[in-house]
Amino acid sequence: MTSALLAAAPALPLHEAGKYVAAAYGVFVTLILIYVAIIAARLQRMEKEIDSLTELAERRLGPDAGRHEDR
């Protein structure tokens, strides 16, 4: 199906200018991906922090505290 779509699409002049256009859009996508990766790393850290806080709360209040909310 992809090949049929590509065959139907108008041809792009990818000779000289193609590499520059690809590089510009590549820079844009890379910037966004780097930012998303940073946010994902932060989220992971926060998840670890929540685990550690849950452990701390369970030690203080007992392991069964708030267990009914897990369901």
Partner: peptide
């Protein structure tokens, strides 16, 4: 950008960078 917008008469295909560069 790549299949609807016409090619620029002066710059040709390179002008496609405009659609990401200028809005940003």
């Amino acid at each position: 950008i790549f299949f609807y917008a016409p090619l620029d008469a002066d710059q040709g295909f390179i002008q496609k960078i405009f659609y990401v560069h200028v809005p940003m």
